[in-house]
């Protein structure tokens, strides 16, 4: 059995090849060659080889391109959304409501000509009645006295991820008599069904509360928040025009 444990003589050809391989790998080996025994075997630790990626430059390019595209798209989406909101606001009919009694004239208060004259007509004053009728025709609306001034006031367009929300209120004798959402998200069927349920409730709440302090409708958070903001701007306009008490 002694022949099995004794080292076998190596073929000189293989020995030569191993020597050449060792020589070729020599530059890649680390400097920490440790001598196990003096004059005997030397143990070499291979240097930590750097993993090479065949498409290293393309990888970097893809990463940079992806990150840049994400950032650019984020900025673009933000810009487009704001531009849409501005366009919606610009396209809304804007007329001048002049409150003679208070001497306030503002272009911020909007009067929608599509609103029936009866909805925008104030009662109790012939001048106020005229104001409603003129408002319906889309011209300058005049209201006599801040207390008796009335009309229709359209709030700002409030964009959200599902669409725009815009509220219009009708004020008669310092009271909000009607509130409607002239714009509500209709981007998908789900939004339509949610808003069909939420908007009437919000309209009712507004006339009951007589302010923008209304309860959000569960399951319609976006519409509720947008409604509240737009309603507040419509009320602000009515107050500025003297139609509502501040």
């Amino acid at each position: 059995m002694a022949f099995m444990t004794s080292p076998q003589p190596i073929d000189p050809l293989i020995a030569d090849r191993l020597a050449r391989l060792q020589q070729r790998n020599a530059p890649r080996t680390a400097q920490n060659t440790t001598s196990v025994a003096a004059g005997a075997r030397t143990r070499t630790t291979p240097a930590k080889s750097r993993r090479r990626h065949a498409a290293r430059k393309s990888r970097v390019a893809a990463l940079l391109l992806s990150c840049t595209t994400t950032g650019g798209l984020t900025a673009l989406l933000s810009y487009v959304n704001h531009a849409d909101a501005s366009a919606s606001q610009a396209s809304a009919p804007v007329n001048t409501v002049k409150a003679i009694g208070s001497g306030v004239s503002t272009t911020a208060a909007t009067v929608n000509p599509q609103v029936p004259a009866t909805a925008a007509t104030t009662t109790g004053s012939s001048a106020a009645n005229t104001a409603g009728g003129v408002a319906a025709s889309g011209s300058t609306a005049a209201a006599v006295g801040s207390a008796s001034a009335g009309g229709t006031f359209t709030g700002d367009v409030v964009p959200n991820r599902y669409g725009n929300v815009q509220v219009q209120i009708s004020v008669v004798n310092g009271t909000i008599t009607a509130s409607t959402a002239v714009q509500a998200p209709t981007s998908d069927r789900r939004s339509v069904s949610i808003n069909n349920r939420a908007v009437p409730s919000l309209n009712t709440e507004t006339t009951q509360a007589q302010s923008a302090k209304i309860q959000a409708i569960s399951g319609a958070t976006y519409t509720s928040n947008g409604y509240e903001q737009s309603l507040q701007s419509a009320i602000d306009q009515a107050v500025t025009a003297g139609a509502l008490a501040g």
Binding site: H53, A55, R56, S58
Partner: peptide, 8 residues
Amino acid sequence: WWLDLHNW
């Protein structure tokens, strides 16, 4: 190169 980029 193709495989590396595909993986990446």
